[in-house]
């Protein structure tokens, strides 16, 4: 368990990652600011990993989110339907971001021989 021993052994036989080596043995020999920078690097790496995991994890979510949204949209549509101002067709364009916003979807795409341009 003595750190010095582990350090010398790993130095001879195989290269450990720099963080491993510093945490095991060579902490006393490093300059303080170097220790600080290493700590910051490790911390930022951890944050980046956490961020990536979060992103990845959140990308699986949209399925439940959209179902929830469409349920909300339906009830909205029913309410709106009482007003008589929204057709249920508008539901399929309704944006997730705001109840009065709509996606500008290209409905002409399916029809052949119609060229759609951005303008």
């Amino acid at each position: 368990m003595t750190p010095e021993l582990q350090c010398s052994r790993s130095g001879v036989t195989r290269r450990e990652s720099p963080e491993m080596m510093t945490s095991l043995c060579c902490l006393g020999k490093l300059e303080p600011w170097m220790q600080g920078l290493i700590a910051v690097a490790v911390f930022l790496a951890l944050v980046a990993i956490a961020f990536a995991v979060n992103r990845f994890w959140c990308q699986e979510e949209p399925e439940p989110v959209t179902t929830v949204m469409s349920i909300g949209g339906k009830s909205d549509g029913n309410l709106a339907g009482v007003d008589g101002r929204y057709s249920s067709m508008a539901l399929s364009f309704r944006s997730n971001e705001h109840k009065n916003a709509y996606e500008n979807e290209n409905v002409m795409e399916d029809i052949p021989r119609v060229r759609s341009t951005p303008m």
């Binding site: 902490l27 303080p32 600011w33 220790q35 600080g36 700590a39 944050v47």
Partner: peptide, 16 residues
């Protein structure tokens, strides 16, 4: 918050 934690981690490392 991230910036503050970075500063704090640096100081922890510096005085470790």
């Amino acid at each position: 918050a991230l910036l503050m934690m970075t500063v704090a981690v640096f100081l922890w490392g510096f005085f470790a």
